[in-house]
Simulated scan of single mutants.
Amino acid sequence: MQSPQRLTPLTILLLVVPPLLWAGNAVVGRLVRELVSPLTLNFVRWVIAFVLLLPLAAPVLRPASPLWAHWKRYALLGLLGIGLYNAFQYLALQTSTPINVTLVGSSLPLWMLAVGSLFFGARPHGRAIGGALLSMLGVLLVLSRGEWRQLLALRLVPGDLYMILGTIAWAFYSWLLARTHEPAALRRDWAAFLMAQLVFGIAWSGALAAGEWTLTPAHLDLGWPLVAAMAFIGIGPAVLAYRCWGTGVQRAGPQVAGIFMNLTPLFAAVMSAAFLREAPHWYHGAAFVLIVGGIVVSTRR
Rank of each mutant, 00 (worst) to 15 (best):
Q255N: 12
C244T: 12
I295H: 09
G236H: 07
A64W: 01
A57I: 07
A273E: 05
S107N: 11
A191W: 06
I129V: 15
T167L: 04
G234H: 02
R45W: 01
E182M: 13
L21W: 02
L84V: 08
G201T: 07
L14S: 02
A203Y: 04
M136C: 14
L118N: 09
V256Q: 05
P225S: 09
R123F: 06
Y85C: 03
R33G: 04
V44P: 00
A69G: 15
A209P: 05
H281S: 12
A132S: 15
M163E: 09
P124Q: 13
L134A: 11
R149T: 15
A287G: 12
L141A: 08
L56P: 03
F275C: 11
A128S: 15
L208M: 14
R149H: 14
T11N: 05
I82N: 03
I164R: 00
P18Y: 03
G211E: 08
I259P: 02
L118V: 13
A64E: 15
L56C: 12
L52C: 04
E182A: 15
H219A: 13
S298W: 02
V47H: 00
F119S: 09
A184P: 00
A209I: 01
Q5T: 14
R123K: 15
V256R: 12
L79S: 02
R30E: 08
S117P: 00
V51P: 00
L226D: 05
Y242V: 15
M112A: 14
R149A: 15
M271A: 11
T247W: 13
L67I: 11
L208R: 04
L61I: 14
S205D: 05
W190D: 02
L108S: 05
Y242I: 14
Q89H: 11
G294S: 09
S272Y: 02
G166A: 08
D221T: 13
F193A: 14
G78N: 06
E147L: 10
V104T: 06
P158H: 06
R155W: 07
R243D: 07
I233P: 00
V249Y: 03
W46E: 02
G29T: 06
M230W: 07
P59A: 12
E278L: 13
G253Q: 06
P280E: 00
L141E: 02
S174Q: 10
F193W: 12
G24K: 03
G285V: 05
P63A: 13
A114E: 04
V36F: 05
L276Y: 07
Y85G: 03
A229F: 07
P237T: 10
V17D: 03
A128W: 01
V296K: 08
S144I: 12
K72A: 14
G166E: 03
P254K: 10
A207N: 03
R251G: 01
I129G: 10
I235G: 03
A49K: 00
V16D: 07
Q150E: 13
V16L: 14
A274L: 15
V101L: 05
L76T: 14
L266W: 02
V27G: 02
V17I: 15
T40E: 10
